[in-house]
Design a binder for these strands. Structure first.
Lengths: 268, 268
DNA sequence: CGCGAGGGTTTACGGCGTAAACGACCGGGC
DNA sequence: GCCCGGTCGTTTACGCCGTAAACCCTCGCG
């Protein structure tokens, strides 16, 4: 743990003779398996934002199930208990992770909060922004998708009141009735959820087998009972996510445009 | 392997004087919070199916996060370690839960494995079957949705090779090209995933607040910055899931019918 | 009658989340 | 100069978790 900001020359007499910054974290070999990058660059003094950022990076790198308070602390050069000064507990930490991840939308220059270019443009940009986030954090996205929402009107994956407000405003300003706007919000959410969750879970499976680079391929399961699956295996494994996303999104928008023009809610 | 035909009348001398099936399980009050039903009816002798069934029931009742090997064992009147004779570990137990839950489709009289009534009928029945399962096990469904698939061509929520084979067969027999069938499979999966996950997560939030029956409603968060959300709160909280599911499903089928007739794959 | 094996229990270990007590350092009043 | 409360991180401790290993009954069978 590099501790050299010459403006803050010493940090503590450090009575223990061997605190050894690159602590192998006791036993278990866990530390060896979880690299955690360089031992922190500049000795920043720990706050909530830094913790959430580290948590996201940790999950991206090692998977959600590897995230523990102790390991997250270690990745910040700190004991687990130090985190509790900024975060009430692990569950709330995960809530914060979800919130932080979707808040990345605010930093996306291609996504606007107001529907300057019309509602279709708005929904297009937003959808692609969410997709970018999902692909950037495939290990986090399932969390975004499944964490129980705080209120019935906050639906994954767009779990931010501000975005919900933006979206509804855009629709209603564009001539959607209240009913139609709400129905559109729901259809849009479900579209994003389904497509992106499918996409990241597929991405996960392409990586996660994680070893066995054997010449004999795929003797895992017996496929002899599923001839069509075998025949189409090539096609089934192909990844057309981007095109399919675009196509389905456009279809959805087209459908919603019909709803808007006719002023009816889709289900009746 | 039921072996208690009255030929095996007694259970065991039971040297311990107080095995008490409704074990309060030490401290922590956890046991009080987890009823676990009657202390097991007939002393059935434990096998994999029974374990998986108990696990599903446990999750349905207490939520996924409450499921531990010890508690699951207790709900079966057995020590945790006894489970390991039938299940390699907790992860595989969860895999088994997922598999068992979607295998409930085989017992659904309204769902057929072959497309006797045409592919649209087939997909309709299948979709509603999956929806019934999702609604019957809302706490399990997120597991179905997010557990990493075993292979790239098995996509949630229909994570069974047999159903994939059925589905592809139905489509191809009905005149879909190979490409179109695979694309349809993907669109269908993503539709089910999105709709059902949204639906069960919403169902969760309606129940889970779990207390606070106070007269003053909903002072949880400040909504003053989100006037549209406030205005539409009533609409947003309304649950039109069934109609929306039906509508979206029909739209999807209609879209796929176009694809089928024109022999093109949707994205190009 | 003995004995091997199947099926459940006991014991044990390291890791987890986290409550509570405990320093070490710091800036500000005297 | 000195003390003193406050901030921030550490130590210690507890109960629960998943699970490896050893153990022990009881039974069916020779």
């Amino acid at each position: 743990m590099v501790r050299n900001e010459d403006t803050v020359p010493m940090r503590r007499p450090d009575p223990d003779p061997a605190p050894d910054p690159d602590s192998p974290e006791g036993r278990g070999g866990a530390a060896a398996v979880l690299p955690a990058g360089p031992p922190v660059t500049g000795r920043t003094p720990l706050d909530r934002r830094r913790i959430l950022g580290a948590a996201i990076e940790f999950i991206d790198r090692n998977g959600l199930s590897a995230l523990t308070m102790r390991r997250l602390g270690a990745s910040l050069g700190v004991e687990a208990m130090a985190l509790y000064r900024y975060v009430p507990g692990r569950e709330q930490l995960l809530d914060g992770v979800v919130e932080t991840v979707i808040d990345e939308l605010y930093g996306d220059p291609d996504v606007h909060m107001r529907a300057a270019g019309g509602w279709q443009d708005f929904l297009q940009r937003l959808a692609h922004g969410v997709r970018r986030i999902a692909l950037a954090h495939p290990e986090v996205f399932p969390l975004v998708a499944t964490r129980p929402p705080a209120a019935p009107w906050v639906r994954p994956p767009l779990r931010s009141l501000r975005w919900v407000e933006s979206l509804l405003t855009a629709l209603i300003d564009s001539g959607f009735s209240a009913d139609a706007a709400v129905a559109a919000y729901r259809a849009y959410s479900s579209f994003l959820l389904g497509h992106l969750l499918l996409e990241v879970s597929q991405k996960g499976v392409q990586i996660s087998p994680e070893d066995a680079p054997e010449g004999v391929p795929d003797t895992g399961t017996d496929l002899s009972q599923y001839p069509l699956v075998v025949e189409l295996e090539e096609l089934l494994s192909r990844d057309e996510s981007a095109a399919e996303f675009e196509e389905a999104l456009e279809n959805l928008l087209g459908r919603l445009e019909g709803v808007r023009r006719e002023g009816r809610v889709p289900g009746e």
